[in-house]
Amino acid sequence: MGSFDVYELLKPFYNRLLYYLIRQKIIQADETTMRVIHDGRENCPKSYMWLYQSGGYHSKCPIVLYEYQPTRAGQHAKTFLTGFSGYLQTDGFPGYHIFENENSEVTLLGCMAHARRKFHDALKALPKNSQKKPGMVQMAISKIAKLYAIEKQIKPLNAEQRYLIRQEKSKPLLDD
């Protein structure tokens, strides 16, 4: 049996998934470091695996795609998502700000888990005797916990029911 390149065999399938991914209303993206060994050397520069997935309950065909890139430049996401028009949910990494211009059809959304992490880090930075006292950081963590509790309760509901409950219960917490 002759040799073949698996990448070349899968490329049409991958491209078709990308075609459907960029037609979604919401895409979630993240990138993580990885070490790639070149020519047997152990100390190699960081590389990145970028992840893109269809987001929310609106996706009729859930898709998760990965893309290897040697850097963390935001241009990689912009190139990968060429043709995408909708909401892009990320962790707030500044590289995604490349989508923020007057002609962009992409609206950036934050991630509540990453926002919560920043408040948790701020809480740990407080002196020990202040960590349990009421304050702005503790209030933010408490409100986020309430949002998580609401999400847990409404998970089995349909999209319209979740929307109505979020407007009634979650929106006031977020506005506050």
Rank of each mutant, 00 (worst) to 15 (best):
G83P: 05
T90H: 12
M34D: 08
A29L: 11
G92S: 15
G83K: 12
M49I: 14
L81R: 03
K60Y: 00
H76S: 06
K60W: 00
E31Y: 14
S85H: 13
L51S: 09
A77K: 01
T71D: 13
T33G: 12
M34L: 15
F84K: 01
S85Q: 14
T32P: 07
L81I: 14
T32Y: 13
G40F: 08
Y68W: 06
R72A: 02
S54L: 01
L51Y: 01
T79V: 13
K46Y: 14
D39M: 08
A29V: 13
G40R: 09
T71A: 01
Y52A: 03
G86M: 02
Y48H: 12
P70L: 07
F84N: 01
I63G: 09
G74H: 00
G83Q: 11
D30W: 14
I63Q: 04
R35T: 15
R72P: 01
D39G: 10
H58I: 00
P45C: 05
E42H: 12
R72H: 01
N43C: 08
H38A: 06
C44S: 12
T90V: 13
T90R: 09
R72E: 04
L51Q: 10
K78L: 14
H58P: 00
Y87N: 12
H38D: 15
G83M: 15
T32E: 11
C61S: 02
P45A: 06
F84G: 00
N43Q: 15
S59W: 01
Y48C: 04
H38C: 02
G56R: 03
Y66Q: 00
V64M: 08
F80H: 04
C61Q: 10
T90E: 07
K46C: 06
E42V: 03
I63V: 10
K46H: 11
G56C: 00
L88S: 11
D91K: 02
K78I: 11
C44K: 03
K60I: 00
T82N: 13
P62Q: 12
T82W: 14
Q53S: 11
F80P: 03
P70T: 12
G74N: 03
F80D: 08
Y66L: 07
